[in-house]
Design a protein around this nucleic acid. Structure first.
Lengths: 342, 342
DNA sequence: GATTCAATTGCAAACGTTTGCGTAATTTTT
DNA sequence: AAAAATTACGCAAACGTTTGCAATTGAATC
């Protein structure tokens, strides 16, 4: 890559100053129309392409957005990326995507590397380790360097930050309420990793809904899981091994729910008659499994789009912090649709 | 981002030349040990971080890899990204990820934008449109600009390029052979989009295997699909509406297979007794659906890792083109495991 | 006390591009 | 024909960093 043709090369070729070439290529008004045409044609012919690195240096603007996410293996994250790209590609931006695997050290390292590269802003969904140990110096450092930070999903500051999140509380509330409406008496919850905001909010939605309908929150019906089907399997087994078995399960996400579904079917319970199921995230496959899964859609792509818009507004000089909370939507399918209404 | 502290600011502060600061920060041997220490400590204190954009300009090396993929919503692509990151993060690289949505114009645009940003190389999996219309001038342009291009999965040049692919032919062969061993007599194939290499190779593996075992390839048992469950549903319906119904299906990928599975269950055929199923890609959920899906794993993460190694070797001066073909592996689960062996 | 040597530091160019200002050449106006 | 205005281009600095070479300093040697 050391032999790319530059504006200086063109200047030599045309025996003129680099500035003339620059003006010709940028359709500057104060340039002779013939020289402009000649230069443009020649530049196009030999495949000249502006080196945007020098522009980044000059303009202190790299036309690049840094994205730090804990994982990229779930629908939610990829949909966010799709949403970001849908808005930012037409705006001329590129995305630097960094996956932390829930590791704080990596998050810190990436944050620094993105700053070194002077990306125009960083969108971040915090890692679990960052949460668990309330580690936030790296974020504070980035902010003190006046790097714009936009939180997606997982944030820790209560105010004074830009963020785009889903109303997980409401989503969980809707899911639980739906199970109540379907006549479920003993609604279990598969609770996500503790430190993470989304897990907490979903659990809270579940709790508050039960209380609103006069139900007790039974600790035996709340199991801790990771965001994986394996974990859902374990938790479901433990639920079904208990004396008090659930007749409805609200899981922290769809992967967990798939795991639970497998166990339930293996033990010959019927879905949704014996046990109704509702997941979270509305992953594409949830509609196409042998039993279509009910799920709370958190409009993942929209999170990306909204984040992109927030970012663009910041680039346009909006200095006030903005916080968006998107509305989730309950999608009812076979796994929870009963004819029995209470 | 216009107020970042630079080496010049430090030079002013210490009343010395920028070069002294540079040498101090880089542990240059010819620098007084005390000044070095003082400068380093102060730089760390105020959070100075080298601007790598200027380094990119100077060294003609951006420590960034461009990645162009047709989609990011499937396991395969995200696993590739994980593989790339696993190797390239420790090596100090960042990834510019661009999703084309199978659109040629976008692919061309991104290719150009990545070149403008002077990424160190571009890994690309070609879009379907690029295939369908054999559009390759944009690739040729990039190559003529001496931008290193590494193909993943979907390529078009037969030689003289760097590439990392899976042996799709072999994977399809293994899947088909397995269905034959399971006693299937009428093995259908859900054939992916025509122009795409992987679809063609998988179809060829299916064909060659059938012929090897003395079976006819029945056109009625080969249905065209897109890479989606919806498409799998349609194709399965059309298969089951025919007079000659299959007793085994090899699908071009797992999503399609999930769609087919749904139809098969709705029509009360038993899996695997009436119809055995094998998919491709071994997506994580395939093991955890109510019926665990047999599938050909194409070691998606390994593709990313191998691509990363190929890239690094190119960065280290390896100029010869390298081509890697990874071995797929058949994972047998419930959906095809019969007790009947032929 | 003059010379040599080593240890530090400064200078300036380079990477590729843009842009304000100056200037030459050409045209228009008086 | 002289003055003014216009047109088109060049010069040089700037963005932040590195690095070969020159320069300075101080100490050691003759």
């Amino acid at each position: 890559m050391g032999n790319a043709v530059s504006i200086k090369d063109l200047a030599r070729k045309f025996k003129c100053a680099p500035s003339t070439i620059s003006r010709a290529l940028n359709d500057h008004p104060m340039i002779n129309i013939d020289t402009r045409k000649t230069i443009q044609e020649y530049a196009h012919k030999i495949g000249y392409q502006k080196n945007t690195i020098s522009l980044s240096l000059l303009n202190k603007c790299s036309k690049t957005l840094g994205v730090i996410i804990p994982s990229i293996s779930h629908y939610h994250e990829t949909a966010i990326i799709e949403g970001l790209e849908a808005i930012l590609q037409p705006a001329g931006y590129l995305l630097n995507i960094c996956v932390t695997n829930e590791c704080h050290a990596l998050e810190k390292e990436y944050l620094n590397r993105l700053y070194a590269n002077r990306v125009d802003a960083i969108c971040i969904s915090l890692s679990q380790e960052t949460f668990d140990h309330s580690l936030n110096e790296h974020i504070d450092l980035a902010i003190s360097r006046s790097m714009p930070i936009i939180f997606m999903d997982r944030f820790y500051h209560e105010s004074d930050v830009d963020r785009v999140i889903t109303d997980d509380f409401k989503g969980a509330f809707l899911a639980t309420e739906h199970l109540i409406h379907m006549g479920c008496q003993r609604i279990a919850h598969l609770h996500g990793p503790k430190g993470i905001t989304v897990s907490q909010q979903r659990f809270r939605g579940y709790q508050v809904c039960l209380k609103k309908y006069g139900r007790e929150v039974d600790d035996e019906l709340v199991k801790q899981v990771m965001f994986s089907p394996e974990s859902g399997i374990e938790a479901a087994k433990s639920l079904l091994d208990q004396e008090i078995k659930p007749d409805g399960i609200f899981a922290v996400n769809d992967e967990v729910c798939f795991g639970a579904m497998k166990v339930i079917q293996e033990r010959n319970y019927k879905i949704p008659e014996d046990i109704a199921l509702v997941g979270f995230d509305d992953i594409p496959l949830s509609a196409f499994g042998p039993i279509a899964l009910s799920s709370v859609s958190r409009k993942s792509k929209k999170i990306g789009e909204q984040t992109a818009h927030l970012f663009l507004s910041k680039m346009n000089g909006m200095h006030q912090h903005q916080q968006f909370t998107l509305e989730p939507e309950l999608i009812v399918r076979e796994s929870s649709q009963r004819n029995h209404y209470s």
